[in-house]
Simulated scan of single mutants.
Amino acid sequence: MPHEIPLIRFGVIADPQYAPLPPNLGLNRYFANSLAKLDEAVAAFNAEELSFVVTLGDLVDRGFENFDAVLARYAPLRHDSIFLPGNHDFIVAPEQLPDVRAKLSMPAPYHHFSRNGLRFVVIDGNEESLFYTAKDDPRRERAVARLAALEAASAMNAQTWNGGISREQLAWLSNVLADAAAAGEKVVVMGHYPLYPENSHNLWEWQELVGLFERSGNVLVYLSGHNHVGNLGRHGSTWYVNFKGMVDTESENTFAVVAIHEDRLEITGFGREESRTLPF
């Protein structure tokens, strides 16, 4: 049966948030334990036939020097590895802020690529935030103003640890979705910050992106991390999957393998991550 053969399979990790620190028991976060969890995830992924493995941000809890220990854990991975940063990845010395994306071997802050007839889009939810840029950067000034407006509106996601995207990136994303539609490609969008359902962890302009995806009609799924308890929603024809945070709990792991079929999305969860079948 053609529907039994997936169009693509890939691995997903969210929020390892490593640091050589004692655990935060109040938040149930065991920063140092993520290295062993990554070893387990890489071994599991190496036993699978995958196109790539994506890590949805927050590789480290803080400290540029901690990236080396995390990235070393990916060295045995036999699949392509795609990284995108989260808010914690920018808790580094100010002069090291421009080096984070290069450290993660990113081709650009936001970008897209095609595999097996699908378009994959990586967005940058850190672009306008309080942590990504120096204090005199115009993007930071816009972030301060945007956060103040959200706070004045009593928005649930008016949080300093969230971020937003520029009008330029929003226009770029709209064009990419239109190009994919013209090419007959369905789309998978990936970012650190959730978009739907409404949540205190959501990207600042989550409603605009949800509306854009609905109008486009070709976004199968949006994948995110950041909210460590995980979440799931559907709006229009798009599924919104928020994966659980690896850093949480002392020993139980969480990661997933995602298979996209013509008619459904199948998530095979490991550890705390749930297995799901989501029809298109």
Rank of each mutant, 00 (worst) to 15 (best):
residue 259 A to H: 05
residue 211 G to Y: 02
residue 255 F to R: 00
residue 236 G to I: 00
residue 183 A to K: 15
residue 203 L to A: 01
residue 251 S to D: 07
residue 244 K to T: 08
residue 164 G to Q: 06
residue 241 V to P: 03
residue 252 E to W: 10
residue 211 G to P: 11
residue 167 R to T: 13
residue 245 G to T: 02
residue 173 L to A: 05
residue 214 E to N: 14
residue 233 G to L: 10
residue 177 L to S: 02
residue 202 N to R: 01
residue 248 D to H: 14
residue 244 K to A: 00
residue 223 L to I: 05
residue 181 A to F: 05
residue 253 N to M: 06
residue 224 S to Q: 02
residue 249 T to H: 12
residue 182 A to E: 12
residue 215 R to K: 14
residue 165 I to C: 13
residue 212 L to S: 10
residue 167 R to N: 14
residue 163 G to R: 10
residue 196 Y to D: 07
residue 234 R to G: 05
residue 164 G to I: 10
residue 165 I to W: 00
residue 189 V to R: 09
residue 169 Q to I: 00
residue 211 G to M: 04
residue 245 G to S: 07
residue 256 A to G: 05
residue 214 E to R: 14
residue 180 A to Q: 11
residue 165 I to N: 03
residue 250 E to Q: 13
residue 254 T to A: 11
residue 210 V to S: 10
residue 215 R to T: 13
residue 171 A to E: 12
residue 201 H to I: 07
residue 220 L to V: 14
residue 212 L to E: 04
residue 247 V to T: 02
residue 256 A to I: 03
residue 212 L to H: 07
residue 224 S to K: 10
residue 225 G to I: 03
residue 214 E to W: 13
residue 210 V to P: 02
residue 214 E to H: 14
residue 223 L to F: 08
residue 241 V to L: 03
residue 255 F to I: 08
residue 257 V to W: 07
residue 257 V to S: 09
residue 212 L to G: 06
residue 232 L to E: 12
residue 198 E to Y: 00
residue 212 L to D: 01
residue 170 L to I: 09
residue 183 A to Y: 13
residue 245 G to C: 03
residue 178 A to K: 15
residue 257 V to R: 11
residue 253 N to E: 07
residue 162 N to T: 15
residue 221 V to Y: 07
residue 233 G to F: 01
residue 205 E to T: 10
residue 192 H to S: 02
residue 220 L to C: 10
residue 215 R to G: 01
residue 175 N to W: 14
residue 229 V to D: 15
residue 163 G to I: 04
residue 241 V to D: 00
residue 206 W to D: 15
residue 253 N to K: 07
residue 176 V to H: 03
residue 194 P to W: 01
residue 201 H to C: 01
residue 259 A to V: 08
residue 168 E to S: 10
residue 222 Y to I: 11
residue 179 D to G: 14
residue 194 P to S: 08
residue 248 D to F: 07
residue 172 W to M: 11
residue 175 N to H: 14
residue 171 A to N: 13
residue 259 A to Q: 11
residue 232 L to T: 00
residue 164 G to C: 02
residue 211 G to E: 12
residue 185 E to H: 04
residue 237 S to D: 14
residue 199 N to T: 03
residue 197 P to W: 00
residue 235 H to D: 04
residue 170 L to G: 12
residue 199 N to I: 03
residue 232 L to I: 02
residue 254 T to Y: 10
residue 250 E to L: 09
residue 251 S to I: 13
residue 258 V to K: 08
residue 190 M to G: 04
residue 183 A to I: 06
residue 233 G to E: 00
residue 173 L to Q: 11
residue 193 Y to R: 05
residue 190 M to L: 10
residue 198 E to N: 13
residue 227 N to Q: 15
residue 249 T to E: 06
residue 243 F to Y: 09
residue 178 A to V: 14
residue 249 T to P: 01
residue 187 V to L: 06
residue 202 N to S: 02
residue 174 S to E: 14
residue 227 N to C: 06
residue 239 W to L: 05
residue 254 T to M: 11
residue 181 A to S: 15
residue 207 Q to D: 11
residue 221 V to C: 11
residue 226 H to T: 03
residue 180 A to C: 07
residue 207 Q to C: 05
residue 191 G to F: 05
